[in-house]
């Protein structure tokens, strides 16, 4: 019996690892100007959080930063928290500049300009957007009784992600590139006794696509 259970468990685990929902990601790029990042310069990846009720997920921001900071052509990246702490309170959701003219005003403060020079920061990557749950269908019912427990059914849902990325060169106070990414994913959850989630990795897909695109823009 234990062998059967072990085998069953292994099948479930393999299913979870191998199977996942379908995801389609589209990345568009608009490059205004050439970019050049010397090895001693750094970038910061920040999320937009100024709109009430809408939050750029920290997962996406951290994920892009981590991917830029490793692998081929890796860059020196400041995490959002580190950047915000060092320049507190000028890049909090309340005070963060939304447009370049406002950024110029912020950078005109000597103590901020000095701190940015100390950090060796040259580019700010702003990430704005979110993933929302779209249409869903199906249903799963579970029951628990004295004799045991189990679920039966099938559920499916869509996740839609829309993100925009703006890259600002803060040494020249100019925008250098804009990227947009849209991703759709359909997740499935069949349940025969045990629900098996086959989750579409929409955010991870967006993160991978955007990070790769940003890396291509900054030749190492």
């Amino acid at each position: 019996m234990s062998r059967i259970n072990t085998g069953y468990l292994a099948i479930v685990v393999v299913n979870l690892l191998v199977l996942s929902g379908c995801t389609t990601t589209t990345i568009d790029e608009y490059r205004r100007d050439s970019v050049d990042l010397s090895t001693d310069k750094a970038i910061a990846v920040l999320g937009r959080r100024h709109t009430s009720g809408m939050v750029t997920e920290p997962f996406i921001v951290d994920c892009i930063g981590n991917r830029l900071n490793r692998g081929k052509n890796k860059m020196q990246v400041y995490t959002e928290r580190e950047f915000q702490d060092r320049l507190y309170p000028w890049f909090e959701p309340r005070t963060a500049p939304l447009q370049l003219p406002r950024l110029k005003q912020v950078l005109a403060r000597p103590m901020i300009r000095d701190e940015i020079q100390k950090m060796g920061l040259q580019y700010i990557v702003w990430v704005d957007g979110k993933t929302v749950r779209g249409a869903s269908a199906g249903g799963i019912s579970c029951s628990v009784g004295v004799g045991g427990a189990g679920c039966l059914g099938f559920g499916t849902w869509e996740d839609d992600g829309e993100y925009e990325v703006s890259i600002w060169d803060i040494s020249d106070d100019r925008p250098v590139a804009e990227l947009s990414a849209s991703a759709e994913g359909v997740s499935y959850m069949p349940a025969v006794v045990v629900p098996i989630p086959l989750i579409a990795r929409v955010k991870s897909s967006v993160c991978d696509g955007l990070a790769d695109q940003i890396k291509q823009m900054f030749p190492g």
């Binding site: 628990v144 009784g145 004295v146 045991g148 427990a149 006794v193």
Partner: peptide
């Protein structure tokens, strides 16, 4: 397949 072992019952109660 319903979970009918004692461990399964305990699990069900815990859930």
């Amino acid at each position: 397949m319903w979970i009918s072992q004692p461990a399964g019952k305990v699990l069900a109660v815990l859930i």
